[in-house]
Amino acid sequence: MTEPPRTARGARTRASLLEAAEHVFAELGYADTSVVRITERAGVAQGTFYLYFDSKLDLFDELVDDLNRRVRHAMSEASAAAPDRLSAERAGFRAFFAFTAEHPALYRIIRAAEFVSPRALHRHYDRIVEGYAEGLAEAQRAGEVRPDLDPDVAAWALMGIGELVGMRWVLWERGTESSAEGDAGGGVPDHVLDQVSLLVDGAIGRRTPSVTRSEENGA
């Protein structure tokens, strides 16, 4: 990977190439995307591309990392002011759905990474889970979530909920009449976010120890 640009102008050009790549990769897929297509969309000369990236794959890897940074920032910023962990979960999901609505390319690019650059794919999910699990563990120590929770497993499971719900109610609903109905963030209907929150509450919310069947029968 090439070194980061040293000037503000260079940073803007590099950002323009990343933005162009986000759209072109999403529209055409990795195999049919060319450096020429990306530079044309970014409005820069083809030779300029190689001042910032070594290859199409280098740009793709950096795009995955860039999308990862942005979505993690959006989620952490949204949940930072929440008064408790369950409120933070709701705010984080809301931010994720809003980011997905604004950047639908996230789904296609991350899925392409499974075949194009598995290391970038693993890095994407590992970085999300690392911060997610740390937040859950901190809330666990504070007594805000159930003590028997495995933060790492919970982080992967909750991330899966967010991805599939976003796919169903953001990506699949784009451009339909139902997407214009009341939503809680980027096209996700209010009732969907309510149901996600209910599931999360049930999964991680602090609960009193469950009564066993033998205890119910007075054994």
Results as ranks from 00 to 15, higher is better:
E3K: 14
P4T: 03
P5I: 07
P5A: 09
A8D: 11
A8C: 00
R9I: 08
R12G: 00
R14E: 10
S16Q: 12
A20K: 01
A21V: 05
H23N: 03
V24D: 01
E27Y: 06
E27C: 04
A31L: 09
A31W: 02
V35D: 10
V35H: 06
V36P: 02
R37K: 15
R37F: 00
I38R: 01
T39F: 06
G43M: 10
G43V: 07
Q46M: 09
T48C: 02
F49M: 08
Y50C: 10
L51R: 14
K56C: 06
L57I: 12
F60M: 06
E62L: 09
L63G: 02
V64A: 05
D65R: 14
N68D: 15
N68M: 11
R69Q: 10
V71M: 09
M75S: 06
M75P: 02
S76E: 13
A82T: 05
D84M: 05
S87C: 07
E89C: 11
E89Y: 13
R90W: 01
R90H: 01
A91Y: 00
G92P: 01
F93G: 02
F93D: 06
F93T: 04
R94V: 03
F96T: 03
A98T: 13
A98P: 00
T100R: 07
E102T: 02
R108P: 01
I110T: 14
R111V: 08
A113E: 03
V116Q: 08
S117Y: 12
R119C: 04
R119T: 14
A120M: 04
H122F: 14
H122L: 15
R123P: 00
R123G: 14
H124A: 13
H124V: 03
Y125N: 11
D126H: 13
D126S: 14
R127W: 05
E130S: 13
E130V: 09
A133M: 05
G135T: 09
L136A: 03
Q140C: 05
Q140I: 07
R141W: 05
A142K: 15
G143E: 08
R146K: 11
P147L: 12
D148T: 15
D148K: 10
P151T: 07
V153I: 12
A154Y: 06
A154H: 10
M159V: 09
G160F: 10
I161V: 15
E163G: 03
V165E: 11
W169I: 04
R174T: 13
G175T: 12
T176L: 05
T176V: 05
E177I: 12
E177S: 11
S178R: 15
S179N: 01
A180M: 13
D183G: 08
G185A: 05
V188F: 01
V188P: 01
V192Y: 09
S197Q: 14
D201P: 00
D201C: 04
A203T: 10
R206I: 05
R206M: 04
R206T: 06
R207G: 07
T208S: 13
T208W: 09
V211R: 12
T212Y: 04
R213V: 12
S214E: 14
E215K: 12
E215A: 15
E216K: 07
N217K: 11
G218N: 04
